[in-house]
């Protein structure tokens, strides 16, 4: 039963990844592409955190409950793996940085072209260039 739940969790996360890749590729609207990209990044992060999880009953966060050597043995037996969590914090920050940059670029594209549809943007660009020459 537990392994069924575990595999449902992992497979549904993988399915979310695939759907968000579809969103990035197929949607013409830049904001929708950005939303799909955010979903992709967050799902990948959740997947990495899951790698460090332990399926045992009293499972604890990786913070020492009290500062004594006596508590350490119990702590190592029940705490989850801290390494994936630390890596995910790095990934979250970088994902946020990328999102800020893309959001600014999208806003600027909207201001200049007046549309968010990539097909329209592709059509308007040659016109703008020609107007510069003339």
């Amino acid at each position: 039963m537990i392994s069924l739940l575990w595999s449902i969790t992992i497979v549904s996360l993988l399915a979310t990844l695939i759907i968000s890749v579809y969103g990035i590729v197929a949607k013409p609207n830049l904001v929708k592409k950005l939303i799909a990209l955010t979903i992709f990044g967050d799902t990948a992060n959740v997947l990495v955190v899951l790698l460090g999880y332990r399926v045992i009953y009293p499972v604890k966060p990786p913070i020492l409950p009290e500062l004594s050597k006596r508590a350490l043995g119990e702590f190592v037996k029940t705490a989850v793996d801290p390494l994936p969590q630390a890596l995910v914090i790095t990934a979250v920050v970088i994902g946020m940085a990328v999102n800020i940059l893309i959001a600014f670029a999208v806003i600027q594209i909207y201001r200049i072209y007046g549309t968010l549809d990539v097909r329209e943007v592709g059509k308007t660009l040659p016109e703008l260039l020609r107007r510069e020459e003339a």
Partner: peptide, 27 residues
């Protein structure tokens, strides 16, 4: 998704132990 999950559930074992590196950091 459900089908794949049920198929995989026969072979997947949920992790119960730490990786050695994680254990080193905890200690």
């Amino acid at each position: 998704t459900l089908g794949v999950a049920i198929y995989l559930a026969q072979n997947i074992i949920p992790p119960e132990n730490l990786h050695p590196l994680g254990e080193y950091y905890l200690e």
